[in-house]
Structure formats: C-alpha cells, structure tokens
Design a binder for these strands. Structure first.
Lengths: 218, 218, 218, 218
DNA sequence: TATGAATGAGAGTTCATTCAT
DNA sequence: CATGAATGAACTCTCATTCAT
C-alpha cells in the first residue's frame, strides 16, 4: 500500500489522459513535418502526401488530426507565430529598463528570424485565402500578429513614459521598427555577419537616427 | 537628314519593325491583363484561362508570347519592379540636396505601394520556386531588387559625403529604411491616413531616431 | 418436471446459450442503428463510423458482427423484408374470406410502407452489386421477395378457387397489384390523405377495374 | 455567284454554327457513354474515369461538357425520361379513342422499359441527393416525371368525359396503372414472354378488374 | 470482446500545356 | 498568328477495413 502511494508519481496515468497526451504528441509531430515541408516548398508546393511521408504517416492519417490542408497550415502558422511573440516578449522581460528591453527584443527577433529562416519565408509569402470556413483560426492568427506589434509598442510606451523616447503613436513606431528587422533578416540572409551586430545596428538607428549630430564644436 | 526627318514621321516603317512593335504591344496587353488577374487572385489562384479571357485572347495564344506561367509571372514582376525603381529614382532626382532627395524617394515609395496595393501583396507573398529553368528571368529580377536598394544607398552615400548623415554601410541603412516603408505600407493598409504623413514620419524617424534628445538645459 | 419448470424460469441458462443470446441482441442493436443511418443517408452516404457511433460501438466492433458493409446492409434488408412479408401475411390471416384478406393485406402493405418510408426509399433505390461473395445473403433476400409475391398470389388463388376472382396467372395478378401499392406509396408520399382511402382505392380498382359498367338500363 | 446561292443548302454552314453542332454531338456521345456505364455500375459505381474511357476521352474532357458528376447524371436522367415520356405520349396519339390510346400507351411504356432495362434499373434505384446546387436540373427532372403521370392522367380524363371510365381522381388512377407497369417490367425481366401479352394483361386488368363478373344467369 | 488509430486505394476535380485546325 | 478542345498528371479528401492493444 505504502509503496503504491509513494509510487503514485510513477504510476501510469489514467488511460484517457495518456491517450490525450499521446494524441497531442502525434499532432505536434505532424506539425513538425508540415513545417519542414511547407518551409521547403511553400503552401501550394507542399502536398499532403509529402507531409504525411515526412511525418511517416499515411496521407489519410493527417486528416485525423486536421480537418483539411488549410487547417493544418493555419495551425502551424499559429504555433509558429505564438512561439515568436512569446520568444520576443520573454527576451524583453530580462531588460532592466525600457531601452534595454527593446534592445533585447530586437535581438530576439533577429535570432528567431534566423533560426526559422525557411518557414519565415513561407509565412511572409503566403496567406491562405482567409475563407469564412476557417475564420476562427485566422482570427487567432491575426490576434497573434496584433500581439506581436503590441509587445513592441508597449516597450516603446514605457520608454515614452520614462521620457527616454519621443512621444508619438507607439504602434507606428513599432511598425517601423519591426519592418526594419524583418526586411534586414531577409536581406542579410546570405551574409554570415553575426546577428548581434545587425540587431545593434537597428537598435542604434532606431534610437539615434541616421543624421549626423551637429558637431558640438562651434 | 531631310529624308530621315520626313520619313521618321510619315513614312511607313519597315513591315518587320512594325510587326515587332505590334508584337510588343500585344505582349504588354497580356501583361496588363495578367497584372489585374494576379493582383486579384494571387499566383496560384490565377489561371491562364482567366488571364487569357481578361486579355481577350485564347489561352493558347498566351503561350506564343510567354513560355509558361512562370515566365509570364516573372516578366510581369520584372516590369513592375523596374517601374517601381524608376519611379523612386526619378522622384529622388527632383531633390535639391541628398536629404530632400531621400524625403522625396520615401514618399514616392509609399505612393507606389499604395497605388499597387494588390499586386504588391502578391509580390511580397509569392516568389515562384526559382527554378534553374528560369534562371535568366530571375537573375534580372534580382538585379532590379538590387537596384532598388542601390538607389537609396546612393542617396545615403551622398548624404554621408556631405556630412549630413552618419557614416556606416549605406546598403544596410537602405535596407532598414526600406523595411520600415514596406512594412508600414502593409500595416497601414486599412487606415485612410494621408500618405504624406507616414512618409514624413519614416523620414523623420530615420533621420533623428526615436530617442528623446537630452534636454538642452545644462 | 417440477425441477424443469422451476428451473426454466429462474435457473441461469447455460453460459454458452446466454452468450449466444447476448450476441444476437448486440447484433440486433447494430442493425437498429444501421437502419436509422441507412434510412437517413442512403447506402453510400452511410459510413461505418456513423453507424458505429449510432450504435455506441467503435467502428472495429461492427466487423465482429458483420463481415463487411455489404453484409450488414443485406442482413438489414433481409430483416426488414421478412418483417414486411410477415406483417402482410399476418394481416391477411384475419380476413374471413379471400377478398377480405386481400383488402387487409393491401392495407397492411400501405401501412408498412408508410411506417418505413425512409428505409423503403433506400431499399427501392439501392441494391448492392450482388457479388458472388455475398451470394448466400442475396439468395435469401430474393427468396423473401419471392415470398412477398407468393403471399398475395396465394390469396388470389383462393379467390379464384372460390370463383370470386377471374382465372389467370395469380403471380401476375399479384405483381400488378403490388406495383400499384408500391408506386402509390411513393407518389402519395407527401399528401396527408388517410392511408385507408388509398388502400381501398387500390383494392376497389383491382377488383372492379376503371371501366364504367354498362348502364344497367335495358 | 449563282452557284453559291443555289448551293446554299450544301454550302458549309457558318463555322460558329458548325462548332456548336459538333459540340452538341460530343456532348451526346458522352451522355451515351455515361448511360452505358451508369447502367452497368450504378451511380456510385461509375467513375468519371470509366465514363471517359468509354467515351474515348480523357477524364478532364468530361468536365468541359458537364460541371460535375451530378450534372452529368441529371442531364442523362433528363434526356432519358424526356425520351420516355415522348415515346409514350406519341404512342397514345395514334389511338382512335381514349381506350385505344391507353392501350397503346401502356404497350409503349412496356416496350420502353424493356429496351432500357439497365438504365431503368439505375433510375429507379438512385436519385442523387438533390442538392441546392443542382436545383435547376432536378426541377426539370421532376417536371418530366410530372408530365409522365400527366400524360396518362389526361387519357383517363378523356375516357371519363366519354363516359367509358369511372369518375375519380385521374392522377390517382394514373399512379396505380403506372405502378403496375413498372413493377411488372421489373418482375418479368427474366421471362421471355412477349411484351404485348403483359401490356394487354395490365390494360385488361385496369379496365375490368380481377373480380369475376357475377354470372348473368340467375 | 472491444477499441480506435492507422491505412491507402480510389474518388472527383483542376488546370498548365499542347497541337490540329 | 490565333484558336480552344483535349489532355492527363497531380491534387485534396474519404472511408471501408485491419490489427495491435
């Protein structure tokens, strides 16, 4: 008896729970496979057969986990974007002050883009016709994109309140900043320059601008 | 001299030349139709039949002017991008000094994006798998994208030489700036804010940065 | 004797028998579920998964009771048709004379068709390709359809022997009569006319025909 | 010139007309093939590939003539049913009086059923889920079925007006009569009995009924 | 017995591309 | 040059059936 109580932590969980957990794992495995294939071939280039093959399943099995190709794609997109936003948000929290947070967020975004180059290509390149049928999924995708901007915008607002950043619409500042990051991630794709350098470049440019300060002398 | 002047305006050109010119006109007409259809339906959504219909040709005729769908798409893309770069470049030339030129270029880019919203969506969202078969076309597309950055980079360099802009890799400055413009064009899509305001916002941010200048006192 | 009498009501039957009986009950439950689903969706529209769900079993379980979908369908069909013939036959037995029996049989057939409208639709609309593999089941189905006609044919023969019906091939009379009933059941589907009226109409028409009797005068 | 005017009847028709006519011929050829395949395999058993093969076309070609499988099926059904009704109606017109017309109509219906045994099987066995999408086609099918009954009902009404048939709802008489014909066509399928005999049997039964006339003597 | 995840053949459908006219 | 009917490979999706648990 004692044994069983003690051992309760290593006892098999209820079958129903275990089954649910395993189902989630298989779902994730399919998403992983789909990510690889979508990243390599784009949305239209990726066939369900190919994704199933990559996941070591039969094609029909995919449909046990996702209603159709669009649902699979938007689920993947959502997972990825949520991961991205979480990653940036988390990085920002490590900063001691708004500017430091911003610097860390920028760097995190660069790093995320770099780690997810292929998928990132697909994401910026394709948004499925956002049909009424998948409205729910797409609403969540949009909310996540919204959150993406909101994370940066909030940092900027904090900087404004601390009087270290100029006033102005934080959402617009965030969009301009994010645009620089994303585009540079694209462009610098090939170069092997250390990411930190680019991140700091963007951070610096965002703060100080490109204009040459009037020489203090005179 | 006299002959050539007279002939140039009223003599029939050689039949071969005329035919060539007409062929080019029909090609352009097809590109026009393709632009409308691609813009409305995206690359995969646009069928050759639909494009042919829009151009008032039979589907087979399209293939007399373009090798295949990819070739049509990349020709269209090239025309569009070249137009975009020309438009920005031209706007810049009207500026009296590097900063003025930059301001005008930014504004021109915003305006172009706005005028070509639909196509622009497609362009950022889709790049055909850049197959070996279409290497030549894609090389030209890349050269044009290169030129796009080069136009801005050159303005920046001029600013640097005039000591109004800080030193640093002009190509990187250009990428950061362009990213802001493009992303804001996307994001602001819905708002009816005057373009000029956004353009000036970006210009201003690019020059001065977001940091609050240390208070002049002391 | 006493033992057996007492035991027959309260003693547990042999486990083997009980199990067999329970198995039959489960089989019937599946047939009930299948009937509902086939009636609602037709043969091809009804999926095994849907039937299993309706029967509160897992899909695999169905295959423990029926070899395949066709076998399930033909077993169901057989049960239904047998029930139909029994029902008509039984109704006929209540008649005092052949004509009364015929009238009751016709009415019973109309009522059965009405009660089983949905399934009846499916039945007339679909006969599985009668494959060699299911020859046995289909033979029994055909025997039952045969019995269906035989029931009416026998009543007609009795009427012929009693000289109240004209001579002629009773099987052919039966087919003509049954055709009228079935077709009218279909056609009258929507109308809410009382069944009895239609049944009596058919009975009357079958007996007297549609021709106007020569006027008795003269 | 004169020649061409005179020859106008043998001159090639306008290309547009010829094209339209040929298109109709190809459409009919596909319907012919579809009829054979549907008759042999039923609606669900018949694949588009198989039908295309039977018509000596590629599968995609079918879709140039019919929107989808359902449209092909309902077009076929409509053609067949219209042919059937026309055939019965025409036969009736040859009759000198209502009863003669009825006799001819019954015979024509038997003959049609016999000639179209296979398709007829399919028709009675399958009605595609009558989706909203194909509402128009199905409306026409229903109208034709309606016309089928109407043809017989009108003959019966004429007989009633001439006082050779009893009064009563002609539509109901027609349904009862048609049911007998259809069902007997099914049942007698195998027998090689001359059709005329069955037709006359049904006609006779419909008119006089099965009841033995009371012997006039006594 | 019962389960239900997995299978995979096969269905309907689309559309870029060809070629006889 | 222009046509547009024909092609057929490739795609997404379904579902009867199996089998390890």
């Amino acid at each position: 008896m004692v044994h069983s109580v003690i051992g309760s932590s290593s006892n098999p969980p209820s079958p129903a729970l275990r089954r649910e957990r395993e189902k989630q794992q298989r779902r994730e495995a399919i998403l992983d496979a789909a990510e690889r294939v979508f990243a390599a071939q784009g949305f239209h280039g990726a066939s369900i057969d190919r994704i199933a093959q990559e996941a070591a399943y039969a094609s029909g099995t995919i449909y046990l986990y996702f209603k159709d190709k669009d649902a699979l794609y938007s689920a993947l997109l959502l997972r990825k974007l949520a991961g991205m936003v979480d990653c940036v948000e988390e990085a920002a929290q490590a900063g001691a002050d708004p500017l430091e947070s911003l610097r860390l967020a920028i760097r995190a975004q660069f790093e995320f883009n770099d780690r997810n180059r292929e998928f990132f290509e697909v994401f910026t390149r394709h948004r499925v016709a956002e049909q009424a049928e998948h409205a729910e999924e797409w609403k969540r995708v949009h909310e996540t994109l919204e959150r993406h901007h909101a994370v940066l915008a909030r940092l900027i607002e904090r900087g404004q309140r601390k009087k270290v950043l100029r006033s102005g619409d934080s959402r617009t500042y965030a969009a301009a900043l994010l645009g620089s990051i994303i585009h540079m991630s694209h462009e610098m794709e090939i170069s092997d320059a250390p990411l930190g350098r680019e991140a700091d470049f963007v951070f610096d440019l965002f703060l100080k601008g490109a204009q040459r300060p009037a020489s203090p002398s005179l």
